[in-house]
Nucleic acid binder design. Structure first.
Lengths: 334, 334
DNA sequence: TTTCAAACTTACATCGATGTAAATTTGTAC
DNA sequence: GTACAAATTTACATCGATGTAAGTTTGAAA
């Protein structure tokens, strides 16, 4: 920066002012400095700036696993949203095969991020309060009592109700549900189960625990296993509401394997609208969350906290929309 | 750090030595310092260390798109491999919808990473030499003449030859190929095309350009479109070798849509072994690269360069293995 | 007891930017 | 021509760690 200042014939501070976008800099100075910057192909030292300013313009994104399509697509959306605001994203995977440590942020990086977007999966969002970090956190998922953090969530209950109502309208009445948490209702799974039960109830149907298929993880594998188990119990069903698309794709696989046709014998509906859902055989009806909207809102809330421009210190909750996408897996009426 | 030193009754430098793992520190001192660290729940300031040391222990990973399953799974593997060596990964997406800029590393972050793992897709790896960065780079893909960078690659040609030979052994003879680059052979696509042609030739079959289905991008969408186009030309074929799984999954969809049965009428084989391939209908035969091996090798090479422990300055090339996974899409003999 | 290396301390410069505050120049309106 | 705000400069401290180099203590071997 010294060199640039010398070359442009201005002071070091002026160069700094130009590069950090200080308001009161004349256009003349700005061009002169930028010319010198170009000539010397100077690039500012981020580490020094970080040290001095105390900010890194990096935000963390804590997700269970990048290899799950939903989270990969979410990460993509968050990276783009953050990029628009001049922030870089550091991804932390919270489900790790190599250690028992499930801290959302490795201690090493605690002080190199300005804030965190935290997407817990089956974890109860109460864990958020245990994060114990000194930067702002935005949680993806419904707000829980006592949480100080901002939350961005979709209407899980309403969306699952819509999905369930959709198959009810097709005339299905024995509707299984896939993805129930075996250890009692928490977080996202609890809300989705609520939506499912509400829909049934409003059709005068009593939810039947025999049609609850548990899955602690929501991978394809678990969808296959849970569906096989459900079939093995001898329970009869004519539809499956799945708590995410991976489970649903696994279910499709297991149903076919057992000679059940989709959608003729069983309607299947998923949740997430990951890319695969459009291309599976049959293609999957699902709930499409507004991923970009979620990402934008989460980044916006977080950046407001980081930069101190949030209107109030009270925890906020943003609820994003969803859409029911009807594809082949629920196409044929009963 | 001052406070910790005072609390432990040692000098600041000793604290620094303990925390940075300096060799000549007695166990007594180490425990004493660590106790003080715990009591004050002190955490070292990364920004200051970065500034002083000139390293960040962050490596960049430049991939086309995180939302593509292959790259998400690769990123996952790289993050784990890097984590084992004490490095954090910063992901850069090189295909961006929002700008024309396709620089592998945004200038802002150029100086906050110690090295880069670069996975070009359709780009010719020659672009690597234009990267013009002052840190080491490891390229995923075959080494090109003149490249100074280390390369980690799988045997693309051999793997595609194996895939093609597999369908030849089933008795298929009119074998289409999906994913050919429309603008001439470059990079990965070129190697895979070579392997396909080699396999045909060794069976005494002349490659037929009418069976070349071009796709500039390798998404499911392009697989559908290219397959539809291929069918529309009226060309007859009894197998499709696809340059990646997304294309293959798109092809499965298009074939079904056109009343062609897989594997009875057409054998389909993919490349990458992404998770979906096991769960599609029919499940997809494919080439499984050793993703973990690729990630481990790439990180190892890069870290050696960063830390100056590489045995020589000459560019190295590591070739990783692969496996042919046979599933339903190539199950029935002709 | 002597000797020498390892362990540790001390003091200070340094990495490269930005904040502060006071001083000076420039520019515009009256 | 004066007044005043904006633009700019200057000088320096500072963010929090680590490298250097010289000096002191400790401990084990000769």
């Amino acid at each position: 920066m010294q060199d640039v200042a010398a070359r442009a014939g201005v002071s070091v501070k002026t160069v700094s002012n130009v590069l950090s976008g200080y308001e009161h800099v004349s256009a003349k100075m700005r061009t002169r400095v930028m010319a010198a910057v170009d000539e010397l192909s100077y690039e500012i030292n981020i580490a020094a700036r970080n040290l001095r300013v105390g900010r890194t313009h990096v935000i963390g994104l804590a997700i269970p696993e990048l290899s799950q399509a939903y989270f990969a697509e979410l990460a993509d959306a968050v990276i783009r949203a953050a990029g628009q605001r001049g922030y870089t994203v550091l991804i932390e995977q919270t489900v790790r095969e190599d250690s028992t440590e499930i801290s959302a942020v490795s201690n090493m990086r605690k002080h190199s991020i300005d804030g965190l977007i935290y997407s817990p999966l089956t974890l109860a969002p109460a864990d958020v309060t245990q994060l114990n970090v000194d930067f702002p956190v935005v949680v993806l998922g419904e707000r829980v009592h006592g949480s100080q953090a901002d939350h961005v969530t979709m209407s899980n209950a309403a969306a699952t109700r819509a999905a369930t109502t959709h198959v009810l309208e097709l005339g299905r009445r024995r509707i299984a549900v896939l993805g129930v948490q075996p250890d009692g209702p928490v977080g996202t799974a609890a809300s989705r189960l609520q939506g499912y039960e509400d829909a049934l109830t409003s059709y005068g149907i009593e939810p039947d625990p025999k049609l609850f298929a548990a899955a602690s993880l929501w991978h394809r594998r678990n969808g296959v296993e849970a569906t096989e188990r459900l079939i093995a119990t001898g329970a009869t069903f004519d539809a499956i509401v799945c708590f995410n698309d991976a489970l649903a794709l696994g279910a499709l696989r297991a149903l076919k394997h057992n000679g059940l046709r989709v959608p003729e014998d069983v309607s299947v509906v998923g949740f997430d609208d990951i890319e695969d859902s459009s291309y599976s055989t049959p293609s999957l009806s699902t709930i499409s969350p507004r991923r970009d909207e979620i990402a934008q809102e989460a980044v916006a809330l977080l950046v407001e906290r980081i930069e101190g421009t949030a209107p109030s210190t009270a925890a906020r909750e943003v609820v994003t929309g969803f859409a029911l996408i009807v594809r082949e897996s629920t196409l044929v009426p009963f």
